[in-house]
Computed example of a mutant assay.
Amino acid sequence: MKTLLSMLLFIFIWLSLMPDAAAAGNTHLIPCHDSAAFLERMEKAPQTYYFDQPYQSYSENLLCGADGLPHLQLRLDRAVDVAIPFGIFFYFAGFVGWSGRSYLIGSKRRSKPAEAEIFIDIPLAIRSFTQGLLWPLLAFKEVTTGELTAKQIDLTVSPR
């Protein structure tokens, strides 16, 4: 319960410190076709397809800084472009980890746990994979009930 409250407090503080949308506006980037430094770089570049095409695209679509280099502006309306791949990766990584954890916990309950780690027990593996599909819900349940973390009394401390 303390962990959940501390996470909520952290999220609340983090959200309260986010800047206003008005403060996140562009203050130093200009369109590349208006940047003298970018145009100078474009003229000094070799006249080949591999230089001409990117420079033309950059001048039409991107913003440049004082150095004449194109920059990508961080905007909240484009956050979905990062959030969706991150969400997919996070879910898949959690699925793999939770499935492996579930398999190892299940194999320890067998009469020969080391053998279950060497020779894959197919029914146990299928059960572990199906549990892995619901890993966010199972993880939340185990965090709230205290099953996921070890008790303080079970932790060993080395003498100093």
Rank of each mutant, 00 (worst) to 15 (best):
residue 149 T to C: 02
residue 43 E to K: 02
residue 90 F to S: 06
residue 88 I to E: 00
residue 154 D to P: 02
residue 3 T to P: 00
residue 23 A to F: 03
residue 31 P to S: 09
residue 80 V to Y: 12
residue 126 I to K: 11
residue 150 A to S: 08
residue 118 I to R: 10
residue 142 E to W: 11
residue 24 A to M: 12
residue 91 Y to I: 06
residue 107 S to M: 15
residue 126 I to S: 07
residue 139 A to S: 13
residue 114 A to I: 06
residue 67 D to I: 09
residue 151 K to L: 11
residue 87 G to A: 11
residue 20 D to Q: 07
residue 77 D to C: 03
residue 28 H to R: 15
residue 145 T to L: 06
residue 7 M to E: 03
residue 24 A to W: 03
residue 85 P to V: 05
residue 110 R to P: 02
residue 87 G to N: 02
residue 97 G to D: 13
residue 147 E to I: 00
residue 8 L to R: 08
residue 69 L to W: 14
residue 10 F to T: 11
residue 60 E to Q: 14
residue 136 P to E: 01
residue 117 E to A: 10
residue 150 A to H: 08
residue 22 A to C: 01
residue 154 D to F: 11
residue 110 R to G: 08
residue 57 S to C: 07
residue 140 F to M: 12
residue 112 K to A: 10
residue 79 A to P: 02
residue 124 L to H: 02
residue 140 F to G: 09
residue 123 P to F: 05
residue 113 P to L: 03
residue 95 F to P: 04
residue 98 W to Y: 15
residue 7 M to A: 14
residue 117 E to D: 06
residue 6 S to K: 13
residue 82 V to K: 12
residue 69 L to R: 15
residue 34 D to E: 13
residue 16 S to L: 08
residue 87 G to M: 07
residue 67 D to P: 05
residue 37 A to R: 04
residue 103 Y to A: 01
residue 21 A to D: 15
residue 32 C to S: 09
residue 125 A to C: 06
residue 88 I to P: 00
residue 84 I to M: 04
residue 140 F to S: 12
residue 31 P to L: 06
residue 99 S to A: 15
residue 150 A to I: 06
residue 96 V to I: 15
residue 59 S to R: 10
residue 69 L to M: 15
residue 147 E to M: 02
residue 6 S to F: 14
residue 137 L to S: 09
residue 159 P to L: 04
residue 102 S to H: 05
residue 13 I to A: 08
residue 106 G to I: 08
residue 16 S to R: 12
residue 46 P to A: 07
residue 148 L to F: 08
residue 98 W to L: 11
residue 83 A to Q: 03
residue 140 F to A: 10
residue 137 L to F: 14
residue 2 K to W: 12
residue 138 L to R: 15
residue 62 L to P: 00
residue 48 T to F: 00
residue 5 L to G: 14
residue 95 F to D: 04
residue 77 D to P: 01
residue 50 Y to L: 08
residue 7 M to G: 13
residue 1 M to S: 13
residue 34 D to L: 09
residue 48 T to I: 06
residue 75 R to K: 13
residue 44 K to P: 00
residue 119 F to M: 05
residue 132 G to Y: 05
residue 12 F to S: 13
residue 87 G to K: 10
residue 117 E to T: 08
residue 52 D to R: 10
residue 122 I to N: 00
residue 141 K to I: 10
residue 155 L to W: 06
residue 17 L to M: 10
residue 81 D to T: 09
residue 40 E to I: 06
residue 30 I to K: 14
residue 48 T to G: 00
residue 21 A to G: 11
residue 78 R to H: 12
residue 87 G to R: 07
residue 2 K to M: 11
residue 27 T to L: 15
residue 32 C to T: 04
residue 47 Q to V: 01
residue 41 R to K: 11
residue 23 A to H: 06
residue 15 L to A: 07
residue 54 P to E: 00
residue 42 M to D: 12
residue 48 T to M: 02
residue 22 A to Q: 06
residue 121 D to W: 03
residue 103 Y to F: 03
residue 49 Y to N: 00
residue 39 L to V: 04
residue 79 A to H: 08
residue 154 D to T: 14
residue 98 W to D: 05
residue 90 F to I: 00
residue 37 A to Q: 07
residue 32 C to Y: 03
residue 144 T to R: 15
residue 51 F to L: 01
residue 33 H to V: 06
residue 44 K to T: 07
residue 19 P to V: 01
residue 63 L to K: 09
residue 128 S to K: 05
residue 18 M to D: 09
residue 113 P to N: 01
residue 35 S to K: 00
